[in-house]
Simulated scan of single mutants.
Amino acid sequence: MRPLYAVPLGIAAASAACVAWAAGYEVRAFTVRRFEVPVLPRGARPLRVLQVSDIHMVSGQRKKQRWLQSLARLRPDFVINTGDNLSDPTAVPEALDALGPLLELPGAYVFGSNDYYGPVPRNPSRYLTQRLRGDDGKRHHGIRNPWEQLRDGFDSAGWVGLNNRRGRIKAAGLEIALTGLDDPHIKLDRYEDVAGGPDDSADLSLAVVHAPYLRVLDAFTADGYPLVLAGHTHGGQLCVPFYGALVTNCDLDPGRAKGLSTHRAGGREAYLHVSAGCGTNRYTPVRFACPPEATLLTLTERR
């Protein structure tokens, strides 16, 4: 018969092993995910879109910086950055340097709350139980980040800012119209500023936002955008193997916490891609069953 103390000791050992894996290996196990999305007009050649999100750069994160620099080797046609680039107010130069090779490509960006404000320490278990019960509506801001420096770096490279704005980029001979919102997680989104639906004069129109709140997804989808790109969720960050995310840090269902899915609203349907991102809050530097990622989306002809 197994001694009574053996069970809690076994649980403790398994828990310690999971923490060691999550904090020591998986949080740096950077990967590239790939999806095909049929949204282009007939006759158009495929477009390769690289989405980076939730970098949460902290000064000194050399491995992450080298990996981000290496993404240019994927040779995307354009880049979409869906926000939360910072987790350290001193890390703007390192974030821009890490993204440097990608800044040489056509691109666009929106900001997330962590671009504007530094994170605050929180008990991860409290965060989890709160999200399982439901969002309490409170936003806890840390110190103000120098987001203007980040914006100026992106703008000077030619990336298009989409915080409650529309913009255009040209990639592979196609005109891409983009409509973006500032971060709904801290209620900076102003859909009325960009309402009106896709730009019919462009070859393709895309919608971009940091946090995939349902009110935003409903608005973009009902207006007729074929594809919405978002981040924010970290894919659940601490997931259950073979099950997936438990939380999304917004009102999106956990089943769509990362990857490609669809969204329906107003009698229309759009593709939704949510990036699990490649970083973490500096105070919770762990991932489990949810490796850090960037995504290469190949846009193909509509079926």
Rank of each mutant, 00 (worst) to 15 (best):
V228T: 15
L206Y: 13
D193A: 15
A207F: 14
F220P: 00
E192I: 00
G196Q: 07
P198V: 01
A207C: 13
Y191I: 06
G196W: 03
D218C: 00
G196C: 04
L229C: 12
A202R: 02
A219R: 10
V216L: 02
A202T: 09
R215H: 15
Y213A: 02
V209P: 03
D193H: 11
V228P: 03
P198F: 01
G196M: 04
H210Q: 14
A222H: 01
P226S: 13
A207T: 09
P212K: 08
E192W: 12
R190G: 05
G224K: 04
V209Y: 05
V228N: 03
D193V: 01
D218R: 10
V228G: 02
T221L: 03
A202W: 06
P198D: 01
E192R: 14
R190N: 13
V194M: 08
D223Y: 03
G197D: 03
D193M: 13
A219C: 00
D189A: 14
L204W: 08
V209Q: 09
D223P: 02
L217P: 01
D189T: 07
A230C: 15
L206W: 03
A195D: 00
A211M: 10
D199E: 13
D203P: 04
P212G: 11
T221Q: 03
P198E: 02
D189C: 06
L229V: 11
V208Q: 11
L214M: 03
A230V: 12
D200H: 07
L204H: 08
L206M: 12
A230M: 07
S201W: 00
A230W: 10
L229F: 13
P212S: 12
L229W: 10
V208T: 12
Y225K: 07
A195T: 06
L217S: 01
G224Y: 04
A219S: 14
V228C: 08
A230K: 09
L229Y: 12
T221A: 03
S201I: 00
A230N: 07
F220S: 01
Y213H: 14
A207R: 11
